[in-house]
Design a binder for these strands. Structure first.
Lengths: 112, 112
DNA sequence: AGGGTATATATCCTGCACGGTATATTGCCC
DNA sequence: GGGCAATATACCGTGCAGGATATATACCCT
């Protein structure tokens, strides 16, 4: 099964998540909004489902897909130690400037 | 050029970032820690560089790679609207429990 | 039961990402 | 300048992800 990051690497899948953020949707709705064939959308939904990003509710022939936040929290957790790097922002900036090489410094100018 | 998420989808590249979180490293160091050939590591570093995840400082033949936080902040920003979904956590939990299907409920038990 | 609708699955094709080996590049030092 | 060390680039092979078309499945309705 694909890792959380691999699942998010696909632009269409991120689009699907963006849409689902506004609420439950049946597959047909997603097919309309993305410009993709229905089987392609179903495939992405399968990947999303298996990775826990979405869950389904069945209603006759229709299947309503809904967002799940757990994998996103995983990403958020992964980011945590990095977030510290820019949250002590003043320190980080000073450290950065202090170690910049000369050509990097000139990159910071509006140049030429 | 690869998108921020695509870059992070590669496990080895995440490993590299994890290592660089502890400080600057020359390529050879990374080659030792990951079990990968030197050209493979250089290739990943190129991808990381082009996506702004790292920057290089040259020191004779040695090249020291250092972390840059900007793309990570991008991810953080992308997450922001989702984060709201679980930050109003009580509401969200209630909503979730209220709409769970029966088999999902049994999933929540320690089961069988 | 039969037809239509909504979605999933099977199958095939194609491009590209990642890894490896071989080689080029750059900069030291003697 | 010649040789070695560190890293980058070229090139090739292979697997797999994502798309399309065709078909199966499931459910409703009359």
């Amino acid at each position: 099964m694909a890792t959380t990051f691999e699942v998010l690497a696909e632009p269409r899948r991120r689009e699907i998540l963006d849409i689902l953020r506004t609420g439950e949707r049946p597959v047909g709705d997603l097919v309309e909004r993305l410009t993709l064939t229905q089987p392609a959308v179903s495939k992405h939904l399968k990947v999303l489902r298996e990775a826990g990003f979405v869950e389904v509710r069945q209603d006759a022939q229709r299947r309503w897909y809904r967002l799940r936040t757990e994998p996103l929290r995983e990403i958020d957790d992964w980011l945590a130690p990095y977030r510290r790097l820019w949250n002590d922002s003043l320190d980080a900036l000073e450290r950065h400037l202090g170690t910049m090489s000369d050509d990097e410094m000139s990159d910071d100018e509006t140049a030429r």
